[in-house]
Design a binder for these strands. Structure first.
Length: 231
DNA sequence: TCGTGATCATAT
DNA sequence: ATATGATCACGA
């Protein structure tokens, strides 16, 4: 496959991202000398990996932002025909142990969401993967209000983890940020504490953004570029 | 129909 | 097992 050099600055990254807006996934895959799978059932992260590759992200399973030198995280977002998110957005693994002293300010959630390059991609399963189009990239930073919302959810969920209530956490909690399993399968286990302070093994969890939150980001962006149509 | 819980691939 | 990238799929 072809290798892209990392973008030197934010403008270069944005220009690179804007170049593929309107094109479909096979267009980008061909350019990168990659083949498009029939579907995502066996390669759920393929779209994200493709755009990482195209944009020159520091590939690999390194921790923290995709473009660390720019302080930017890349997220592809599958959307329906109306531009509404089809899936929640994974943010980071939830720390179930050794989490004392972690605050919102020092959390991975805040770090990863401090600046995100969102790239909407058509995600309806009726559209062949190769023909799904890529949308306009959105460089986003949380507003004070959004950050407070995320911080509140994060604090509530972290409080429960620290109190050993991990098994009581459900995806229904949190207004915009939720915790759900995040693992290869149901057999994967990781250490955590129960309500008696005893070490137990449980399914790894991750923080995810609920759809209404990312929907708001997309909506706000449209209002920015079409202020006269913001009815 | 849709959200929650479960799951898939790959690199380290 | 943990991190990256996420979507699948079934029960309510």
């Amino acid at each position: 496959m072809n290798i892209q050099s990392p973008p030197k600055n934010e403008l270069e990254l944005m220009q690179r991202a804007r170049l593929i807006a309107g094109y479909n996934l096979s267009d980008v895959a061909n350019r990168m000398s990659l083949t498009v799978p029939q579907n995502l059932q066996k390669q759920k992260g393929w779209v994200g990996m493709l755009l990482e590759c195209y944009l020159g992200a520091n590939a690999g399973s390194k921790a923290e932002q995709d473009f660390a030198h720019l302080g930017i995280e890349l997220k592809t977002l599958p959307v329906n025909r109306y531009g509404y998110p089809l899936e929640t957005t994974f943010v980071s693994v939830a720390p179930l142990v050794a989490n004392h002293g972690i605050t919102w300010e020092t959390s991975h959630v805040k770090n990863k969401l401090s600046k995100v390059l969102w790239i909407p991609v058509e995600g309806e399963r009726a559209i062949p993967l190769a023909l799904r189009r890529i949308g306009m990239p959105i460089l986003w930073q949380p507003t004070a209000k959004q950050e407070l919302q995320l911080k509140n959810d994060w604090q509530e969920l972290m409080d429960m983890i620290v109190l050993g209530k991990i098994e009581r956490i459900t995806a229904r909690q949190g207004q915009y940020l939720q915790i759900r399993p995040k693992a290869a399968n149901g057999k994967a286990l990781t250490p955590a504490y129960n309500e008696n302070g005893e070490l137990i093994m449980t399914r790894p969890r991750g923080f995810y953004l609920k759809k209404p939150f990312t929907a708001q980001i997309l909506s706000d962006f449209l209002v920015q570029i079409h202020p006269q149509q913001s009815f």
